[in-house]
Design a protein around this nucleic acid. Structure first.
Lengths: 254, 254
DNA sequence: CCAAAAGTGTTCTACCTACACCCATGG
DNA sequence: CCATGGGTGTAGGTAGAACACTTTTGG
């Protein structure tokens, strides 16, 4: 990642940005990764620009890798945001002013700002595997509960909303969990993930029956210990079968 | 639409294009509208660039209006194409050379070509209502049967494929037909539309039962005459109910 | 011993699927 | 009168939805 704005802009497409809604799941809550911009109280999604010799999908993967350290994970384009004015919270002028104060006069010298269209991606990542890393113009990078997300810079609140809609659509046809849960997990944990994403409750028996019918789960001989109730069995995804199910699709109908 | 490339480029975003897959339905065949570029034997999807004061969605609507004369019709963004090299059939150099021969030396003077990312939209339009109109750098605009589409410029074959996938996904959750069929149509015609899009056959009785259950169709007291068999009843969409069904969604499960 | 949460199977219902005969029209 | 294609209803099967009691564990 460049530390000089001009250099960075010369190597990238200027009118196209990439923004990633990175979903994680922890303690029964769906979370997104957000960055706080230096010298402002404004938060945004992790994003960036496409290098001239890089595809949009590669750029999204690179950005994800830079923020989370993770590669090879589920990442999907879901919508491109092309409104004329994508600034909310702060106007463009206000934001530029604040950044100039923080980074010094001349920060934007030689840079012509044009309107930017942003390609939205959403990613599903394993919460514990992520070490959130701010970049050169942000000073904080952390998980937020979906319900607590504040007013964000640009149109990023709308981006999260649409990403959630896309995720809900996604979960109806493809299995979800491989990238969001730790390697071993219990059936109630998986159920809670589905319940959180879809914001509704399922019957335990029906849920188990349906998920087992996908033939992507391996029931282990281990149980989770240390809980003040009957020990639940641990499960693990069969990666090959899971990937096959991603291709052929499944019907989540409850 | 500008007739001077430089002027046009100064008023638009350069690195972002819009391409529209315009679907029509006629004589039991699904069709797309294609344009032939002057001075080449290359066909492409109708497309264009976003004006500086226009949203991406507005641009797509404008392009659709320019090519078909239709507004207020179903148009949906489905994917953004961001590969590094989106030229197939002809390379960028070959294409520019041909265009320079046709439009004269100096046609590209003062224009810096950069890589372009393209936002794909698909539209459903009523075949008979469309008067295909070429634009200033194309000399033909006509319908092609989906099966007969030739090798296109850029990545437009892939765009059509993905649009078809998006349409097939769409038809499973939303009613389809209002924009593709004439005002009055028979149940077998509607069925043939569904069969063509999904490339499979349905049982007449089951199809009728399911579509009527959506409560979006009005059975008329008229029949289609002039066919060498029993006259089929005519139906019409109830626009209000149709729009409500678009919002709430339907389950097409056969 | 109590509270909390997990394990487990069956019944009912609704919807999807399969299926066939008669009728109207034009040629 | 014949060929073509449309109009119409029912029965069976499958899959989704509803539902409760017992067991294990930690405190």
């Amino acid at each position: 990642m460049e530390h000089n704005l001009r250099d960075y802009f010369e190597k990238t497409l200027k009118e196209v940005a990439i923004d990633c809604v990175i979903f994680g799941f922890h303690a029964g809550e769906l979370k997104v990764l957000l960055l706080k911009w230096k010298g402002t109280d404004g938060w945004s999604l992790p994003g960036g620009h496409i290098l001239l010799d890089e595809s949009a999908n590669d750029a999204a993967n690179r950005i994800l890798m830079e923020r989370t350290g993770l590669g090879e994970i589920f990442l999907q384009q879901y919508y491109t945001f092309g409104a004329v004015n994508r600034y909310t919270h702060y106007s463009e002028a206000e934001l530029l002013e604040k950044l100039e104060i923080t980074f010094g006069k001349g920060f934007f010298e030689g840079i012509i700002f044009r309107r930017t269209v942003s390609i939205g991606y959403f990613a599903l990542v394993e919460f514990d595997q992520v070490s959130p890393a701010p970049d050169w113009f942000t000073d904080e990078c952390r998980w937020w509960n979906l319900a607590d997300v504040p007013a964000l810079l640009f149109d990023h609140n709308e981006m999260i909303e649409r990403a959630l809609t896309a995720l809900r659509q996604h979960i109806r046809n493809q299995p979800v969990g491989y990238n969001l849960l730790p390697e071993k997990f219990t059936m109630p944990e998986l159920q809670r993930l589905y319940e959180t994403i879809l914001d509704r409750q399922f019957d335990r028996r029906n849920f188990q029956k349906l998920l087992m019918s996908y033939d992507i789960l391996e029931k282990l001989d281990e149980k989770r210990v240390g809980v003040a109730n009957k020990s639940p069995f641990l499960y693990r995804f069969d990666k090959l079968k899971y990937e096959r199910a991603m291709e052929t699709g499944v019907a989540f109908s409850m």
